[in-house]
């Protein structure tokens, strides 16, 4: 699952704009399986953390109401060459992270 995150980070005027896409089913736990009629158990990302070097610049807590294959964009004060790491943890304890250099 090493490739579940895609990140683009661009610096302009001291502000880094981060755009990220994650691959995740984001099941709410309210949807029913059409064949069996049973509820599909909830499976969604709970925590997203972004770090520039060792400093946490953004954290988010999510519920099942974030769309499937989530898109996230945010800005933080930083510059070119920052090493940006984005990681997520879901409600089943799975996690993934991805590091990129700010352009």
């Amino acid at each position: 699952m090493a490739k579940s995150i895609k990140i683009r980070a661009k610096a302009k005027g001291g502000v880094v704009t981060v755009k990220a896409l994650m691959n995740h089913p984001m099941e709410t736990g309210l949807r029913k399986d059409k064949k069996t009629g049973k509820l599909i158990p909830a499976h969604h990302i709970q925590e997203v953390t972004a770090k520039a070097g060792d400093n946490t610049v953004m954290t988010a807590v999510w519920g099942g109401a974030i769309s499937k294959n989530p898109y996230l964009s945010f800005k933080y004060p930083g510059g070119k060459g920052d090493s940006l790491t984005l990681s997520w943890v879901d409600n089943k304890g799975n996690s993934d992270s991805m590091t990129t250099a700010v352009k």
Partner: peptide, 23 residues
């Protein structure tokens, strides 16, 4: 929504901007 909470973003070290897609 059935449960209104969608998500929360801690932006104390970031700019006051966030963009995402919700259900």
């Amino acid at each position: 929504n059935n449960s209104p909470m969608v998500g929360s973003f801690d932006l104390s070290k970031a700019e006051a901007f966030v963009s995402t897609r919700i259900k």
